[in-house]
Amino acid sequence: MASPDRKINFWTKAAMIGAVYALLTVAAAPISYGVVQVRIAEALTVLPYFTPAAVPGLFVGCLIANMVGGFGILDIVFGSLATLVSAFLVTRIRVKYLVPLPPVVINAIVVGAVLHYVLELPFYLTFLWVGAGQLVACYGLGLPLLFVLDKRRDIFD
């Protein structure tokens, strides 16, 4: 097959990453939006380590996922922006064990702040609530995924 325009390919690849993210969130819905929000799809936040196309991809996937469920408008705006920022930061990280850190910390801060404001609960509580779920998803699932994908870097070319 002839190789397609790199620029267009960047965006279609991003679209597919977004689709997979949204798919994983919706398919695993009960644990995605429930107790301490363990979103399995958040494991995909390690993808920007392999390809920058994952930055818009994860943003879009998160937008779609949040449109379908979750906290509504606040999640759509702030949750997706948090994902965008952490995905961008991940592209800058070269130490594997630190890759899942931005999605844990940034999400816990941003979503934690939103919940703190909405529910008027102490910030450290909402921070821990969000952070715990992200920690499980990003370190528990994301890091193993990073090692698996690291052996198959060729699929991102």
Binding site: A15, M16, A19, P56, F59, V60, I64
Partner: peptide, 15 residues
């Protein structure tokens, strides 16, 4: 970004 959102929506059932 809006375009890939439309593409992603279209490809979710396929994937």
């Amino acid at each position: 970004v809006a375009m890939i959102m439309a593409i992603a929506l279209r490809f979710i059932p396929t994937l």
